[in-house]
């Protein structure tokens, strides 16, 4: 059946070369997964898409790095002995920018595939639901890690140029990078679960922003009330209920970061600290599980 039947080509079509069969290698699912990962990561920064799609992610990346660059310049210029803020505090301070990036790119990553029905096309290839979910999850995590890690790298390089204490700076930088990685996984998990619910990008953007700002707003205001009542233990527990405070609490206990909670009240003891870590990991694993459930159904639709 692969043999070609002789037949003159239609007059209106120019055939300089006839159809050629492909005898080369067909790389398997692992390669397909990697390809989807690379493509999703590139498009998270608008690469391979229209110029318009590049604007927002690039601006947000610049905004993330701006304050870090200024701090470094000031630190070098004024002959300070350390950077004005800790590495671990940086992502907490810049959380609005990270949230905005996530709100824009999580729906871009999955809602558009649903809206333009590209998802069924992927599943007509050798890949399975788990490959799709893993690629998208890893790609958005990497994109967020680039967003959060780059300014930290700017700070670190600046600190080395300013000849601050190397071991001190390296330890702080490494811890902050670990926290940034956990944050990237947590945020992309939650963002993707929300975005995968709707083929409408606008709804996805609004829902991600709502979940992140409302939960943060609720947690900080209740923490504020607790602070007025002088209830530091409660402040520590409350941090569990919004993504960014979850990261804050976890890095305060496990990485010795300075807490941004009211009165600097992080988790009060090892029990609370452990709960933070467990909740953090459970949410990451849980979002992966929810995405799997969502796309197993999508394969059949």
């Amino acid at each position: 059946m692969t043999q070609l039947e002789g037949r003159p080509p239609a007059a209106d079509v120019i055939h300089d070369i006839g159809y050629r069969h492909y005898d080369g290698p067909r790389l398997g699912r692992g390669y397909a997964r990697k390809s989807l990962y690379v493509q999703s990561l590139r498009s998270a920064y608008g690469l391979g898409r229209s110029a318009k799609s590049k604007v927002l992610p690039m601006i947000l990346l610049a905004v993330m790095c701006g304050p870090a660059a200024i701090m470094v310049a000031v630190a070098i210029g004024t002959k300070a002995t350390k950077l004005p803020i800790e590495y671990t505090q940086y992502v907490i301070i810049m959380q609005a920018v990270i949230g905005l990036y996530l709100a824009a790119q999580a729906p871009q990553s999955v809602s558009l595939d649903l809206r333009f029905k590209t998802t069924p096309l992927y599943f007509s290839r050798p890949i399975e639901a788990v490959d799709y979910v893993a690629s998208k999850f890893a790609a958005l995590t990497t994109a967020l890690f680039i967003l959060t890690g780059t300014p930290l790298l700017v700070m670190y390089i600046g600190a080395l140029l300013a000849k601050f204490d190397v071991s001190d700076q390296s330890a702080g930088f490494a811890k902050a990078m670990l926290a940034a990685l956990l944050l990237s996984m947590l945020f992309s998990g939650i963002g993707l679960v929300i975005a995968a619910l709707t083929p409408r990008r606008g709804f996805g953007v609004a829902a991600v922003i709502a979940v992140f700002t409302l939960s943060y707003g609720a947690v900080t205001s209740v923490q504020g009330v607790a602070s007025i009542n002088g209830n530091a233990d409660v402040i520590g527990w409350l941090g569990l209920f919004s993504p960014i405070t979850l990261i804050d609490g976890a890095q305060t206990w496990w990485l010795g970061a300075t807490s941004s909670f009211p009165e600097g009240a992080g988790p009060k003891d090892a029990v609370v600290g452990t709960v933070y870590l467990l909740v953090l990991l459970a949410v990451i694993a849980g979002s992966f599980g929810l995405l799997m459930r969502r796309y197993r159904k999508a394969v059949l639709s």
């Binding site: 492909y22 290698p25 397909a32 391979g48 229209s50 595939d113 333009f116 590209t118």
Partner: peptide, 24 residues
């Protein structure tokens, strides 16, 4: 049904689908 993302070129899209099918 329609299955083409509008802000991507045909070349970019078809190359991507070829790779998902396992072509180097």
């Amino acid at each position: 049904h329609d299955c083409l993302p509008p802000d991507v070129s045909a070349t970019e899209f078809v190359v991507h689908m070829a790779r998902i099918s396992g072509l180097p």
